[in-house]
Design a binder for these strands. Structure first.
Lengths: 153, 153
DNA sequence: TATTGTTATACTCTATAACTATA
DNA sequence: TATAGTTATAGAGTATAACAATA
């Protein structure tokens, strides 16, 4: 009796299909953002600062599960684009404070609309109950596995 | 009456939760593969060559939806690692043929087992019917939106 | 000493475009 | 000319580690 060696195919995994859809959604959103000169990672930082008013790189790094160095680099790029500003924290000589510029304040709602539109495009083929079920299943996995990291890219 | 400007939150989108789970699954798999000295993109190429026996960079590029340059670079790394070989195609002076080395033949089933284990870890919290429903919904989106690209990373 | 942030370095992933060899 | 493949270049994304300034 010969042993049958089964090597599962790439598409034998749920993770494969998940990544396929997730990548398509992200790439489509990236293309939409590109028209506004912004990347997905930049959008995440902009949206985060929109809520925070003024916050430090450290706190952003902790919130987004990224390193401080990564935030510095991302912030540098957004400063170059005139979308955020960085100033010394008067309360702590080591700290900096990041905040949106007025231009970014006006841009973020536009980017949010692009996010809404992108999401709509991909999931409008599902019935409301199906969308709800998809969300429930994803949340269940997140809860079961203790996933916490915010996906920046 | 003042206008209320609603800027949807990052987590207001299904795409956000999808990316969160997908990233967690991929990162976990990447860590597992790292123990074998292989990246996710490399695994995808190895698994593809496992089925093909011998194939050209062009065909691989078309299959995976990547550029020829990207395949060359990926192949270079796998050749350095002793996992694939590249030889001239006797039938076409321009073409090359990629194939797994014996070492990779032995490694791929091990990597496939890691993929199985990773998938199991993430989705074992769902009941069989839930897993089936998740797959069905993902496939529906793929069909509705005409998604074709194989996720290499 | 511990913390904040920047800088330096490195690596993966991927693309575009120029180029070489062959068809 | 068209195709196959490599090489060069670039840029996003991210990490680690060394460092300076401040607490």
């Amino acid at each position: 009796m010969s042993e049958i060696q089964t090597v599962s195919a790439l598409d034998a995994h749920l993770g494969y299909w998940l990544r396929m859809v997730s990548n398509a959604v992200s790439q489509s959103f990236a293309r939409a953002l590109d028209g506004e000169g912004v990347t997905v990672a930049e959008w995440v930082l902009l949206r985060t600062l929109h809520d925070a008013a003024e916050t430090s790189p450290s706190r952003v790094a902790a919130t987004l599960g990224m390193t401080k160095g990564a935030i510095t680099k991302l912030a540098d790029r957004l400063i170059d684009k005139g979308l955020i500003r960085r100033k010394a924290d008067p309360a702590d000589g080591r700290a900096q404070l990041l905040a949106l510029t007025p231009r970014a304040r006006k841009l973020v709602p536009k980017l949010a609309a692009l996010a809404d539109a992108n999401d709509g495009t991909f999931f409008s083929g599902l019935k409301p109950a199906e969308r709800a079920e998809l969300e429930r299943l994803l949340m269940k996995i997140i809860a079961d596995r203790g996933i916490t990291e915010i996906p920046a890219s």
